[in-house]
């Protein structure tokens, strides 16, 4: 291809960022608004009724706490994966990336257990508005986790071939994937107290 797009691996001299980084931040901005709308819905529903249940009464706080720790840990591992590349250490990058993906699967497994408990008791979004918003927000968050797994697995597997040819660009990709992953963590940091602890 003769088309050459500049600022893929080096930052733009004026803006100081690469295309991908600006792109991923714009994407995260839209994600903020998406989850913002859902939080707005949650607050609306909650303000509208007197008998809104306490999350700690009907949801599993220990499991959610475990998941919080798992996600926070995965956030560190993904940023460490990026730092390892910065230190030219591909094998350490691999270790951290594997850890990240492992954490994502643990998170999903715990989530599945939680959902399973609810379904066993015949609880669904139709049960009450609390459960409705609980399932929608955690479900959408879960989809984001799955998306993250796909991206991270690609970058760990076939995507990592780029390290040999364009190390700068590959490091940039890991940083962007990391930004997304931190955002998923960030959403959970708010979800956890709002749904489970109040």
């Amino acid at each position: 291809m003769s088309v050459q797009i500049p600022y893929i691996d080096e930052p733009h001299p004026v803006t100081g960022v690469t295309n991908a980084k600006l792109g991923v931040w714009l994407f995260l901005a839209s994600e903020v608004m998406l989850f913002g709308a859902l939080f707005s819905a949650l607050i609306t529903l909650r303000l509208g009724v007197n008998d809104w249940p306490h999350g700690y009464d009907i949801l599993n706080v220990p499991l959610a706490t475990l998941n919080t720790v798992v996600l926070i840990f995965s956030s560190v591992t993904v940023v460490m994966a990026w730092a390892s590349l910065k230190m030219q250490n591909l094998s350490r990058f691999r270790t951290y990336m594997v850890l990240t993906i492992l954490c994502s699967f643990i998170f999903l497994a715990v989530k599945a257990v939680e959902y399973g408990h609810k379904f066993e008791h015949g609880i669904s979004p139709a049960t009450s508005n609390f459960y409705a918003i609980y399932f929608v927000i955690t479900g959408l968050h879960g989809l984001h986790i799955i998306g993250g797994i796909i991206v991270n697995a690609y970058l760990l597997g076939p995507g990592s071939r780029m390290w040999k040819t364009q190390p700068e660009r590959f490091t940039g990709r890991i940083e962007c994937a990391g930004l997304y992953w931190h955002f998923v963590d960030l959403v959970w940091i708010f979800l956890f107290p709002i749904l489970y602890l109040l």
Binding site: L22, W25, L26, A29, V32, M33, G36, A37, F39, S40, I43, T44, R46, L47
Partner: peptide, 16 residues
Amino acid sequence: TLALTAFFFVFLIIIP
């Protein structure tokens, strides 16, 4: 970008 987003986010959150 984030400042702009934060501003409109606030509007979303005060709707309820």
